[in-house]
């Protein structure tokens, strides 16, 4: 039984992805980070437990290891993985709910990546901005199901994700919570685990849940100043020092990454809200990289343009 473990990405695979992807690295990272954040936001609005949303995050990361980032709209991939994960969980959500939530998150009124407290936020909640017309819903629905199949196919139907969160709690119990209040250290550890989901280093694809759990506990203990056992206690949980060190650094760097990536998005002209394919394409041509990807982008653009036109025509007709 492989309840406790996950399929991991091979170094080969990761290298391929990073080095031969069509996009510059920092753009890959930005897209990854923003889409994972979008999934989390949608999970909250859909009232899904974090255990479900976190699994969707992991599936999304696995999917993008295999399929090119630019093949589909990022928000659609996020919706499809979330839909699929929720469907397999005890908390299924309807395509209609997803359509509403994503329409809101992508609208100008959404507070996604644009908190009301931020400067120059005009702060108008305009419900008509995220009204979902029947045609828009049908289009979303079609894309959702097509992508669901795509994701399943790419993952070879392996939708199982083992999360480290329950392990972290068990380990903390074994460590008697390092003699600090349970909520403090437990909460902190879970925060690290959740943040790690967003990391463009794809920590959930390189480490098994037990390692992630130990690293999160280590970081949490350091943050709250708890006294850890003198010995090499991580070995009890089958974690090696080297991997632990790597993960500890990886987890601690997520916050910095996040800030930098937000800045990058702003620099690309995405002041607020979700980054879209069109932003990435614009950025590429601004950098003069559009040529390098050549026909592919053009073909995609062409297809997207045609779809947009068709959609508009349909909306006018309807």
């Amino acid at each position: 039984m492989s309840h406790m473990t996950n399929p991991l990405a091979t170094p080969d695979r990761l290298f391929q992805r990073r080095s031969f992807g069509a996009l510059p690295l920092e753009l890959q990272d930005t897209i990854f980070f923003a889409t994972q954040c979008l999934t989390q936001a949608a999970g909250i609005l859909l009232q899904l437990p974090q255990s479900v949303t976190a699994q969707a995050n992991v599936l999304l990361a696995r999917y993008w290891l295999v399929e090119p980032l630019m093949a589909h709209e990022f928000s659609d991939v996020s919706a499809a993985t979330l839909y699929l994960t929720a469907k397999c969980s005890p908390h299924p959500r309807s395509p209609r709910d997803l359509s509403n939530v994503y329409a809101y998150l992508l609208s100008a009124s959404s507070t996604f990546f644009s908190p009301p407290t931020a400067p120059n936020n005009n702060n108008n909640n305009n419900p008509s901005a995220y009204y979902v017309s029947e045609t828009a819903y049908q289009a979303f629905h079609t894309r959702l199901l097509a992508l669901e199949g795509r994701v399943l196919y790419a993952l070879s139907f392996d939708t199982h994700v083992a999360l480290p969160h329950p392990l972290a709690v068990t380990y903390l119990q074994a460590l008697e919570f390092l003699h600090v209040p349970k909520e403090t250290i437990g909460g902190k550890a879970v925060q690290y685990l959740n943040a790690a989901l967003l990391s463009p280093q794809m920590l959930y694809l390189t480490s098994q849940p037990n390692t992630l759990a130990v690293a999160a506990i280590y970081n949490a203990a350091r943050d709250v100043g708890a006294k850890m056992p003198e010995c090499e206690w991580w070995e009890v949980f089958d974690v090696e020092r080297e991997e632990l060190g790597f993960l500890v650094v990886g987890m601690r760097s997520v916050e910095g990454w996040g800030r930098k990536l937000r800045e990058d998005m702003k620099a690309m002209g995405v002041e607020r809200g979700m980054i879209m394919r069109k932003h990435v394409e614009a950025e590429l041509s601004r950098r003069g990289l559009g040529v390098r990807i050549g026909n592919k982008v053009d073909a995609e653009e062409e297809a997207a343009r045609m779809m947009d036109e068709k959609m508009e025509a349909m909306e006018v007709a309807g």
Binding site: M1, L84, K87, C88, G149, T159
Partner: peptide, 21 residues
């Protein structure tokens, strides 16, 4: 039922079978 995408019964069966050996 195309409305809900890939049938959940099949998904569940596949998921379980993949875990079992």
């Amino acid at each position: 039922n195309e409305k809900d995408g890939f049938p959940i019964t099949a998904l569940r069966e596949i998921k379980l079978l993949k875990l079992l050996s």
